[in-house]
Design a protein around this nucleic acid. Structure first.
Length: 692
DNA sequence: ATCCCTCGAGTTCA
DNA sequence: CTCGAGGGAT
């Protein structure tokens, strides 16, 4: 066995230098790709280098060092994380929720420093990433430890996991900059930042989990936190996390004058520093930055939940110091939260007009994006079990599409004891009739014929805006009619007299007249509205319009056989059976008789095919000024077009009003023609119709 | 049998 | 707005 010049520590010299060379090239490629977003070598070339290094290291295991790029693939599973004591505590920041509170922060700083109000303080504004705060410790420029923030004083040692994140340098660069203020890599430095997951990667992970039947993550932040705290770092390695660095904890052997200098130095050393940083000369510029990002944040490929404002001068920072657990020299401006946590007080079961039983979560009221929310639908029994929502649970809620509240997930760690699982009652909570859930269906239904909840629901539907449009007769008034035995079915509305209404609670003469008047006006409703108003299962606005067009009168629909019904466009066996069954019922015959008696027997106006609209599929979105969406749909239908509610490649035209949302986006991405309300009205005029 | 497109139904708050 | 399911095309 020969030793000597050819061998060093058991490794041939030329091998040692090749290993070193490959590592340098891989590190540089990683830096350019993950930190700078400007790759210089191809993926294939990168893979080739990686494989060569892996081979060499397999052959010479002594050559493996902790900062070798091969070590990013993850280590074997751990049983738990060791606690990690932060040398300098990772403090939390005080919050500001609007511009006034930022101004107050500025004044507080000045007062504390004994400055007059006119002298501006320089601030650094940064985006506040919605991820997991972590700290990285480097000795001699090599990553030796990484930890979560934890409670600020003690976190968890997750070095192995953080090592797998490609945006984190395993060894620090010596500054590439020539400028005299460039900082050399210090012997010891603790760097802080936020580990996040970009939207694309978040989506990819959830799709993968969905396929594997695993629960999906509610948001990128949760996914990032879950990934970073994996006991098996090989899983973390597959999650493509990234990290933005924004500060330092303990450090030695380097001097800084400002926070901005620190950020520049971090960039020089090879960390990923977010480019959207602004040095603001005064607090007004800070407010401008905040306003600017309120909308611009939507276009970022990752989530931010606000911004961070820091006094730039480290000297001033030191003079300001800290109060309890947060520094006086920094503040976090938080955008209004789109999510919040609250507690489930009760899971109530509602009965709809079709008898559908819907579980609804009644929650401790909580503010979500500007409104107080206290209830949210849980859709159906399966949904409740899927999310495993139980009474007394703490849940995360959000407003879907910025409007309708929904329960995102249960915070399992906060569950106390073992609350009972939700079960759908087997008797209707309103009328006590049996509850049935059809084979393969998601909804359970009350089978009661005379269920008051269903009757009430049918009445509300009958009078609703898109049905008979009886303005001034709302749910409260209908309840009184029903409770006083004045009406039993929708047709009874037409035999109500003003003397019957006036004695009712909170009913002035004027409102009574209005109600009677609105009922009278509704007699003019067209056939499709009447069919829709009857509330036949599976018959909504579109199907009602089809039936009206095809048959022309209620009588004709009633006399149609199941087979004849199924011949109508868009009506198949299920809908045909439902319609036939509806008209077979004695109650229906009775209602129709009473309606006719009241003079309600509309015929459908034939559609007038126009050149402009015939055969076109049109979607209306957003708020329009001159017309309601419903009126517009009715109008174009009469002119031969097919109004639709969703945009697809079959859509010919999208009319976008004010504040149009996802439908407009979809139309643009599909290349569907989009016009404004004014252009639409012009088209209508061309078609020879006047709008009042 | 399977996929895609639509429609229907239920829901929240100011 | 979203989910589930019916209808029709493939």
């Amino acid at each position: 066995m020969s030793t000597g010049s050819l061998f060093e520590g058991g490794i041939p010299n030329e091998i040692a230098s090749e290993i070193e060379d490959i590592r340098k090239r891989i590190n540089r490629a990683n830096f350019l790709y993950y930190v700078k977003d400007q790759p210089e070598i191809s993926d294939a070339e990168y893979d080739r280098l990686m494989r060569r290094l892996q081979d060499l290291e397999n052959e010479y295991p002594e050559a493996v060092t902790p900062d070798s790029p091969t070590q990013r693939v993850g280590a074997i599973p751990q049983t738990e994380f060791a606690p990690y004591q932060h040398a300098v505590p990772m403090l939390s920041l005080a919050n500001a929720f609007d511009a006034d509170e930022l101004q107050a922060f500025d004044e507080r700083c000045k007062r504390f420093l004994g400055m007059d109000r006119e002298t501006p303080i320089e601030y650094v504004c940064e985006l506040k990433f919605d991820g997991l705060a972590c700290s990285l410790t480097y000795r001699g420029g090599i990553l030796v430890a990484g930890a979560t923030r934890g409670d600020g004083f003690q976190g968890e040692n997750i070095t192995e996991n953080l090592r797998t994140i490609k945006a984190i340098p395993l060894n620090l660069h010596h500054s590439r900059r020539e400028s005299p203020d460039a900082k050399a890599v210090p012997p010891v430095v603790e760097v802080r930042g936020e580990v996040i997951l970009e939207h694309d990667e978040f989506r990819r992970i959830n799709e993968e989990r969905e396929i594997n039947g695993e629960p999906t993550f509610a948001n990128p932040r949760n996914a990032a936190a879950g990934s970073v705290r994996q006991l098996d770092s090989r899983i973390t390695a597959r999650r493509n996390l990234t990290m933005f660095c924004y500060g330092v904890g303990a450090y030695d052997g380097v001097d800084f004058d400002t926070h901005y200098e620190i950020l520049c130095a971090l960039g020089d050393w090879g960390f990923k520093v977010n480019p959207n940083i602004k040095v603001a000369g005064n607090i007004d510029e800070v407010v401008a930055y905040m306003n600017e990002w309120e909308t611009k944040k939507e276009s970022l490929p990752y989530d931010i939940d606000g911004m961070v404002v820091k006094v730039n001068s480290l000297d001033l920072q030191t003079r300001l110091g800290s109060v309890s657990r947060s520094p006086r020299w920094a503040i976090a401006y938080k955008y209004p939260a789109h999510q919040a946590t609250t507690v489930i007080k009760e899971i109530r079961v509602q009965v709809g007009r079709t008898g559908a039983l819907t579980p609804v979560a009644i929650m401790e009221p909580v503010e979500v994006s500007g409104v107080t929310v206290s209830r949210a639908t849980l859709h159906n029994e399966d949904e409740v079990h899927r999310k495993d929502v139980r009474v007394s649970d703490t849940v995360v809620i959000q407003r879907a599409g910025e409007v309708i509240p929904e329960v995102v997930e249960v915070v399992k760690e906060k569950r106390v004891g073992d609350p009972e699982e939700f079960t759908m009652p087997d008797k209707c909570p309103v009328c006590g009739a049996d509850v049935e859930r059809a084979e393969g269906e998601a909804v359970a239904r009350c089978v009661g014929i005379a269920c008051p909840a269903q009757i009430r629901g049918r009445m509300i539907h009958f009078t609703s805006r898109n049905a008979m449009d009886i303005d001034g007769v709302g749910p409260a008034l209908l309840d009184q009619f029903i409770d006083n035995g004045l009406i039993h079915d929708p047709a009874d509305l037409y035999s109500l007299t003003i003397d019957q209404i006036i004695p009712l609670e909170r009913m002035a003469k004027k409102s009574a007249e209005n109600a009677i008047n609105a009922i009278e006006v509704s007699k003019n409703a067209n056939l499709s509205r009447l069919i829709y108003a009857l509330g036949i299962r599976h018959v909504g606005e579109r199907t009602a319009a089809s039936l009206a067009q095809h048959f022309g009168s209620i009588e004709a629909v009633r006399n149609a056989s199941e087979e004849e019904l199924a011949e109508v466009q868009d009506i198949g066996p299920v809908v045909a059976r439902s319609v036939a069954k509806f008209f077979d019922q004695e109650e229906t015959t009775e209602v129709l008789r009473k309606l006719k008696e009241a003079g309600i027997d509309p015929t459908e106006e034939a559609r007038r095919e126009t050149e402009e609209f015939a055969g076109k599929t049109i979607v209306f979105t957003g708020a329009m000024e001159k017309l309601t969406r419903e009126k517009a749909q009715e109008l174009v239908f009469k002119l031969g077009a097919n109004p639709s509610s969703s945009v697809s490649k079959n859509t010919d035209l999208v009319v976008a009003g004010d504040k149009a949302g996802s439908k407009l986006e979809k139309a643009i991405s599909l290349g569907v023609k989009v016009i404004s309300e004014d252009e639409f009205l012009e088209m209508v005029k061309q078609a020879g119709v006047e709008i009042d």
